[in-house]
Write a protein that binds this DNA or RNA. Structure first.
Lengths: 338, 338
DNA sequence: ATGAAAGCGCTAACAA
DNA sequence: TTGTTAGCGCTTTCAT
């Protein structure tokens, strides 16, 4: 009567119920084939009866694995979070793959100053087997520190520093160049750009694509205003652009949100799109199909970035080699705005 | 020479380096006051020198705590994820509070059929101390099952079933009623609604608010079309509404995204907003400020829902009592569309 | 104020 | 094929 199994069942409980040893039960739980079928069967029944679930802490302690992967979103990411579909898309992609692999997704939102240390501490504690870094800012030393800590890491977007961690990125420049060719082919000659933040790879490479695309126009001068990828900054940048040159007839914005902002300013200042000014964005987020007019944009496979990130980190964690970089293609999606 | 400290430092390593016992080091690590200052100091130095970080698995094994909280996003949530700012906002809010409390946020995306069991298994394994459920569908049995499993749970939105778990929600109906009063006050007499899915509390209560608000209009007949909270469904529902009654002069849409969709259909079919038709949405997401015209909408404190959820679950996990429900206020934000 | 020792639940040699 | 045994790294009585 004082044998009441107090807490949740352990291996020991199951072993006793099934008349086997802890080791054998463990074998069944972990799918070892070297267990006699009938024994395995009775153990499985006992497990079901008792509602036994392995204690992950105990398992981690001995296996040195946690079966969980951290996804670190830097400050800028959480800021953008509210209206940008990029990070949610990446989270979904990563989550899907990890779920299939039976790994847990631990989200680390690096929102404050102190969180840098906190994350390092966390990772050092080996609470996760690997880290996916949604790296955005070039100045970030995190990728390199994580690599130095000996933790498998893969980042979204080529790290700007000297870090040599594997990454997944997209063909920013060539996508933008396609957009520029399209504008030029449309006969546009005064093409401006609303660039992204220049401390992020995406911002830089998309600007580079604009500049190189502009070379197809002999004598054309670059017309650049910088935004922060968000809508309001597109609204403002477009105003500055028109002040500098009222005769702009084409705009490439480094994000769909900024392109949408540009659309609003153009409309407000009496320009017709695409008649007077053709506009192209970048990202191909859901919202781009619903701007007025619908946005011609450079498509990047956001969801696939997520799945690839997850696949790579799983490979690294498993001790396999991975390519130093995977660069996914982008392509122009032509809609009514250009 | 064969004394090389192979792996990462453990309590034992630190203890030896500081000339103390494991127990004392543990006391210092956990901030016990019963350690002589100078001893504590030398231990702290050893910890810093060696770069010691506690092993969470070992700690969890003995303390029976994991210091991590799961945020479960049901299937519908991940579907909505791409263009709706609700879940990202909640994630941010939850993340912020948990970060301050030094708890980890484990994201469980319940995207497939099998994930229901998987989640239950996961929670039973006590990998998390508590669960925040972004409950959406009424039919969901998860809240009750989790409660039955003895895990602290709090849900976002009142669970539709018989589950008796604490929840955080907003004043759907009264917010909608304010919107309806506004429309009526504007002189609108043929007011339709684009309702949300009727298997979600939010969908049901907002519809209830519309119906009750309509009572201020003697003889007015309800005009309801259902959507799924997303933009496209708003576009479609508005079409059906106008087919049923071309003279509609007011619309309440149960989400900003659907309201934006309605705006598009109205414009396409030659209606001026708000002159011919006044439109009001719900949510007050960032995008609502950028529709054309800007959307009058019922504001709900998305971020606060997240922070409240986190606060409640922390309280529950700490063994404290919490209110059975917290219902946050909503209010009308008047912009140009109504 | 400090240390010795037990044990959390599990896996992985090693024996049998 | 199965069981015995030794830890994984930590917290926590219980002595001292």
């Amino acid at each position: 009567m004082n044998e009441t199994p107090a807490g949740r069942p352990t291996l020991e409980t199951v072993a006793r119920a099934a008349g086997a040893s802890r080791a054998t039960v463990s074998r069944v739980v972990n799918g070892s084939t070297t267990v006699r079928p009938d024994v395995a069967e009775s153990i499985r029944r006992a497990i079901a009866d008792l509602g036994y679930v392995p204690n992950p802490a105990a398992r981690s302690l001995v296996t040195q694995r946690t079966d969980s992967i951290a996804l670190i979103l830097p400050e800028s990411a959480t800021r953008v979070f509210s209206d940008d579909a990029f990070f949610p898309g990446v989270i979904r992609g990563v989550g899907e793959v990890l779920e299939k692999a039976d790994k847990q997704l631990v989200l680390l939102l690096a929102s404050t100053q102190s969180s840098h240390d906190r994350i390092l501490r966390y990772v050092h504690g080996r609470t996760v087997d690997g880290v996916v870094l949604a790296s955005m800012h070039g100045a970030d030393t995190l990728p390199e520190e994580l690599r130095a800590a000996g933790v498998p890491v893969v980042t979204s977007g080529r790290p700007l520093g000297e870090a040599t961690v594997p990454y997944i990125d997209v063909e920013h420049a060539s996508g933008v160049e396609a957009a520029m060719r399209h504008l030029v082919g449309l006969g546009r000659r005064r093409i401006a750009t609303i660039a992204g933040p220049q401390d992020m790879v995406a911002g830089r490479e998309r600007l580079a694509g604009y500049l190189s695309g502009l070379e197809a126009l002999p004598g054309a001068v670059p017309l650049v205003e910088e935004g922060d990828f968000m809508r309001q900054s597109g609204i403002d940048a477009m105003e500055r652009l028109l002040e500098r040159d009222p005769d702009i007839d084409g705009v490439f914005a480094a994000s769909d949100l900024m392109a949408d902002g540009a659309l609003r300013t153009l409309r407000r200042l009496g320009r017709r799109v695409p008649d007077d000014v053709a506009v192209i964005g970048f990202d191909d987020v859901e919202a781009a199909r619903f701007t007025d007019p619908p946005l011609t944009t450079v498509h990047q496979p956001i969801h696939e970035i997520g799945t690839r990130l997850a696949e790579q980190i799983l490979r690294l964690v498993a001790g396999e080699e991975v390519e130093a970089s995977v660069v996914l293609p982008t392509h122009l999606v032509v809609r009514e705005s250009a």
